[in-house]
Design a protein around this nucleic acid. Structure first.
Length: 622
DNA sequence: CCGAAAAAGATTTTT
DNA sequence: TCTTTTTCGG
């Protein structure tokens, strides 16, 4: 491949970013300015210039972005690109820990706890510490634990009724005994290891000589530190981002990271991409008007050559949410009748709860649609049950998984017996599974409970013997059969749907053989892949829309309390983030954007009287 | 111990 | 409104 193949289609600024090989590089890439192209082309260019693919590390924020990056790089640079390390920060953290976790007393075969697992473990700690009646919320503890890890700080809010530290300590101790990491650990623990071990730092510094980071504006403190400790002496670090699209502050993301890049690396080359190739001028101006109301941002103004039709951005007011939904469905129907493909239409909202009304009307109009997010596949009960069994096969120490399935389906083991077992295990310092047989021999557990436990152990043994010899799809289908999960689920009211999702899971696990890496994949990728060639209208939250584009975009619920959301009212910073969220939404639109608000909205079973979002006036430039 | 019924909880966003 | 947890009678 020649230089020209890689550089031909780029504008001068993009070219500058792609060809800057040595030393730190900061790319401010406005919405629709070809950011992803720059990253892909840059990686391809590096390989072309003789950089070894395995020396390149590409970090992104979402799985979606990571997958896209790998695919497009493969298309451009061919098979060699397979050796580029590309993935999310969390996936990188997990990969790192598989190799280095022994340094903090963890086995490399650890499992990953998702939010639900984390919550129920916290709840159990609260219970075991007899802090139940204090009505301390697990959500607050979870928030504390996660924030501590995301921001690498030890600050604890003072206005708490009780000291959260005993709970947190017990949580961490047990999590370690179970060989589990939570999401926060995947970023925090690598930081810890890297900062304590010079030789580990050196190892990864020489391993990855070229680092590319996408969505740098969304990095939190832990991600930042992790990054800084693996940047080699050559400082070939390239970060790409847009401070106007930082929308993860609530999760510890710090826009300051991108704004301070110049301080971290004074010698850095800075490229600003301001030409927008996506939207029409009207849409772009509306978005620019809006975002110019933010105080903390690097000054810039996007421009576009796309003239468009006369009215490309429309704000509508409706009497209630049903009218709004009716309009959206009607308009989409009209567009489709004009030969617009449904896949070129996106409907966005601030909170998932808004999708329902729209869905009803879309069904009524016979319009195909896909809802992204919402109830996540791997959080469905039947799927979590199956995964818990798999986790137990891979790692008998996983008490959380054990608690979940020991009596699912019911086999006569109630809370009493379970508490007894837990107590013995705690006492002996062993895992519950290890002491089960002995508890029965010693007659501590009797009757139906003992019988249930015996059959449970037999089931596990049987499954464990299958695990090395069949693929995971096969393993799961035997699992649902032997455990009785399948029969249990089938007899439920919504059994058919649940059986369908079990079948989906089995199908998607065909050909997989490595249980540990399979489970990691499931923990880190929360949504099952929806075929993207599906010709359907896309419904999603504004957060999910980042990185996508549609010819026609509908944004619902521009109301005070919804967008901006109530929870942002007490801080100016948070309001700015809401503004960026709407900015992201508007800039997804290529040809037309329909924004709307309703005077009455049914929300959580209540009728709310709404007033228009202040953002509407800002868009219109008053 | 089980399952139904009632009560409570949570409704922002994601890895 | 919808889901999860707790309570209570069998």
């Amino acid at each position: 491949m020649k230089d020209s193949n890689i550089l031909d289609s780029l504008n001068p600024d993009q070219k500058r970013a792609v060809t800057h090989v040595k030393g730190p590089l900061l790319v401010f890439a406005g919405a629709g300015s070809g950011k992803t192209r720059v990253i892909i082309h840059r990686a391809a260019y590096l390989i072309h210039k003789g950089v070894k693919p395995y020396e390149i590390l590409c970090l992104t924020f979402t799985n979606k972005a990571a997958t896209e990056m790998k695919q497009r790089l493969q298309a451009m640079a061919g098979i060699r690109s397979a050796n580029v390390w590309a993935g999310t920060f969390h996936a990188f953290g997990a990969w790192f820990l598989r190799r280095e976790a022994s340094r903090i007393g963890y086995p490399g075969s650890f499992i990953i706890y998702d939010e639900t697992d984390q919550r129920s473990l916290i709840r159990r700690c609260i219970k075991d510490l007899n802090l139940n009646k204090n009505r301390i919320k697990d959500s607050i503890i979870a928030w504390l634990i996660n924030t501590k890890k995301d921001t690498l700080s030890n600050k604890i809010p003072e206005h708490l009724e009780i000291d959260p530290m005993p709970i947190i300590n017990m949580y961490e101790k047990r999590k370690m005994a179970y060989s589990a990491f939570d999401f926060g650990d995947l970023l925090y623990r690598p930081c810890q290891i890297l900062s304590n071990h010079q030789e580990v730092r050196d190892k990864y510094k020489s391993m990855f000589r070229y680092i590319l980071v996408d969505e740098y504006q969304d990095t939190n403190m832990a991600q930042y530190k992790m990054l800084m400790s693996i940047i080699g002496r050559e400082k070939n670090i390239c970060v790409v981002g847009d401070d106007d699209q930082s929308i993860y502050g609530w999760r510890g993301a710090d826009v300051g990271n991108i704004l301070r890049f110049k301080d971290d690396f004074p010698e850095a080359e800075v490229v600003t991409l301001e030409q927008n190739y996506r939207s029409t001028l009207d849409i772009l101006n509306a978005a620019s008007n809006l975002i110019s109301n933010n105080r903390t941002r690097a000054p810039k103004r996007l421009w576009s050559n796309n003239k468009g039709e006369e009215e490309d951005l429309i704000v509508n007011e409706f009497a209630d949410d049903e009218d709004e939904a009716g309009f959206v469905a009607y308009t989409i129907g009209k567009l489709i009748s004009q030969d617009v493909s449904p896949s070129n239409i996106g409907v966005f909202y601030r909170i998932n709860a808004l999708s329902r009304v729209i869905e009803e009307d879309l069904v009524g109009e016979d319009i195909p649609y896909v809802v992204y997010g919402g109830m996540r596949f791997y959080e469905r009960r039947e799927i979590k049950d199956i995964l818990a069994y798999l986790r137990l096969i891979a790692n008998p120490m996983d008490e959380e998984a054990l608690t979940r399935v020991i009596n699912t389906p019911p086999r006569g083991i109630g809370n009493k017996s379970l508490d007894k077992l837990h107590a013995i295990a705690q006492d002996k310092g062993l895992s519950t599974i290890e002491i089960m047989n002995k508890a029965i021999e010693d007659n501590i557990i009797k009757g139906s409970a003992a019988k249930g436990i015996k059959s449970f152990l037999t089931i596990l043994d049987t499954l464990r013997s299958y695990a090395p010899v069949v693929d995971i799809g096969d393993l799961i289908s035997r699992l649902v059969d032997i455990t009785g999960l399948q029969d249990m689920v089938a007899s439920e009211i919504d059994g058919f749907d649940r059986i369908t999702s079990i079948k989906e899971l089995i199908a998607s696990a065909r050909g997989e053989t490595d249980l540990v890496s399979y489970l990691e994949q499931k923990a880190l990728i929360s949504n099952i892949d929806i075929p993207k060639n599906a010709d359907a209208v896309s419904l999603m939250t504004l957060h999910m829309s980042k990185g996508l584009e549609f010819d026609y975009v509908f944004i619902l619920g521009l109301e005070e309390g919804l967008l901006p959301h109530v929870r942002s009212f007490d801080s100016g910073e948070a309001i700015e983030e809401e503004r960026r969220l709407l900015y992201v939404g508007i800039t997804r639109a290529k040809r037309k954007a329909f924004l709307s608000w309703a005077r009455i909205r049914g929300l959580y079973g209540r009728e709310m009287f709404q007033s228009p979002s202040g953002f509407i006036r800002e868009i219109e430039g008053f």
